[in-house]
Design a protein around this nucleic acid. Structure first.
Lengths: 355, 355
DNA sequence: TTGTATGCGTTATCAC
DNA sequence: GTGATAACGCATACAA
């Protein structure tokens, strides 16, 4: 299937002359050029401390002149180990996962380890394919931010160390996740602390486990405060559009029947609510209705009325996961699987409190 | 450097028993188990048509029972080729680039080729490191969405085919980019076509080449219409905040001095403008001021007043680039470098035209 | 189809 | 430090 843009400008160019055909430069060539032994070149690359500075200089020079690029496939085969780890990500469109990747890369690079990514793009078949790919590549280890729905078969091959991100419901492997129940509790407690008593939770707990967890946290917070009530407004999705629909519905209620605090299960949902209430002169944010979001997306702070939200520690998740993976890689016998649960944090903005 | 979350729940678990130590299962083991020759196993994996169905079944069964995972490093070394391509991306936080990755993956997978990603994260050193990594891995080819600022040294090693994405200013390689000048022209023409004559361009052409190109397109469109004027409002950045600042400034002008059409150089910039004007009862969108954004971010359609914008064909860029790369990989001698320029498209929403 | 043999580019281990 | 050489796991070509 070819892609032909509606209008395409193409300029034919001559192929560049292969000034130097690097294609076949091997270590042996470098050794010859530098006048040293093959093994010495290998040492310069992997154990420089075993080689005199003078020799190193000669070898490095030869490498430059010849444009030698070490062959990692051969290296991995001979050494039996790779120094790159593969990360399989459920959805790169979600900045939460990109943050995890950034955190993992940062920590891994501190140990001189590379991280390559593969996008699952929300498709189960791609998740399996990418896992296979990395195992076949004999990656040192794998970081997996899986699709929702624990799938034990992901662990079939035990050969490559594997750490799960953002999914606690896995045994037989390390996992790093975030405490969604606590996040819900934080949001609701914040509203209750501001004196709100008629709370509403926007989102469908039956739709996703994290949302259910957040809802439980909200319930717990409400139960701790005498006189506080909680209403559940199920939305089909958690997009801005759903927030607007819910917002319109709420504006049509008598003001005494309206909640004075809303915990939205996602920032976009909160954004939709803020848009509707903000356009209604009879409703003031946060005086009449205070609103919290969830995720700390840029949608939350790009809002005309910046939205209080729960920040997910994405980078930290990635860093902790990489840390656990490196431990499993380095000390396979002594390693013990741990389930690490990180805590989200509250970010207060104008949607709940006047600056 | 260790990451210790403020509060961390850790549960120690026993390491899983290595039910089957897959670590050392080789093709030879599979062959023995299936009662066939080593070469036959290889054929089953790479050239099934050369093997009888009965033999295939035996081999597949043995593979399953032993949990054999083919070693790609060895395969690549022996065959001299890899069937995965590496993609180095300037900034995964930008959904534009994620779209490119999706497009590249889709097209490559049609040929049974894998795509792995590496995030440059806007840092020049990481870009170089990731390129090195992929070349050392002997990837079949590399897709590079480079950092701004053409860097010829990226092409030093000519061994691995390389295609540039979103950067036309490269010779000696294929490039795929989008016509920003045309995008600016589209936006301005749209406003002019709606009768607007006092146009304003928001953004700083000196800040980035793409913005300069868009501005040129706007200038061209304005020049084509008699009586049309164009004002340039330089903003330090293209965030929502900058849009709001500009919006406030414009509301303070006498209405006759205000533009009746604004081409923002980015969606977030447009979002900020829409937020301010939308909150001002004396200004109607689009009657008094029509606004276009650029990029077709979700910010554009999540806005309370959905924003007309220029859609960047991200997936198409990725697909075309992958197509060109595959051609260069397959036909190295007949391949000719081409510079493909794709066209953006106008997406009309409520910020310029009542539904 | 089967064995068998050779080579891919590196690492690692010898004795020197 | 040198040279030589045996793996590493697989693809491929060859003769049987």
């Amino acid at each position: 299937m070819f892609f032909r843009p509606s209008r395409i400008m193409v300029s034919i160019m001559s192929t560049p002359e292969n000034v130097a055909s690097h294609a076949a430069v091997r270590m042996e060539d470098v050794a010859k050029r530098a006048g040293v032994a093959l093994g010495t070149v290998s040492n310069v690359l992997n154990q420089p401390q075993k080689v005199s500075q003078k020799t190193i200089d000669k070898v490095v020079l030869a490498i430059d002149e010849l444009g030698f690029v070490p062959n990692r496939a051969a290296r991995a085969l001979a050494a039996g180990t790779s120094n790159t780890i593969g990360m399989v990500i459920a959805d790169l469109s979600n900045s939460f996962f990109v943050d995890m990747a950034r955190g993992a890369e940062r920590l891994a690079s501190e140990s001189g380890i590379n991280v390559v990514l593969a996008n699952t793009d929300m498709r189960r078949s791609k998740q399996a394919a990418n896992l296979n790919l990395f195992r076949q590549e004999r990656m040192a280890g794998i970081l997996l931010a899986p699709l929702p729905g624990a799938d034990p078969t992901l662990l079939t091959s035990n050969a490559t160390p594997l750490v799960f991100l953002n999914d606690a419901a896995i045994v037989g492997a390390c996992t790093v996740s975030v405490d969604n129940e606590h996040g819900g509790y934080l949001a609701a407690s914040h509203l209750l602390g501001l004196g709100r008593r008629r709370l509403l939770f926007a989102g469908d707990p039956d739709q996703a486990v994290p949302i259910a967890d957040r809802y439980r946290g909200v319930e717990r917070a409400v139960a701790e405060v005498a006189g506080a009530t909680l209403e559940l407004a199920r939305t089909p999705e958690v997009q801005a559009e759903n927030g607007r629909e819910l917002g319109i519905e709420l504006t049509q209620r008598a003001s005494v029947d309206r909640p004075d605090g809303i915990v939205a299960s996602a920032d976009l949902l909160a954004l939709g609510l803020v848009q509707i209430f903000g356009a209604d002169p009879s409703i003031r944010i946060p005086e009449d209705i205070a609103i919290t979001g969830y995720d700390n997306n840029r949608a939350a702070w790009d809002s005309l009325i910046p939205i209080t939200t729960i920040d997910q520690p994405g980078e930290q998740i990635g860093a902790v996961a990489a840390e656990l993976l490196l431990d499993e890689i380095r000390f396979p016998e002594t390693h013990r699987h741990v389930h690490s649960v990180l805590q989200p944090s509250l970010v207060v903005r104008a949607s709940t409190r006047r600056p």
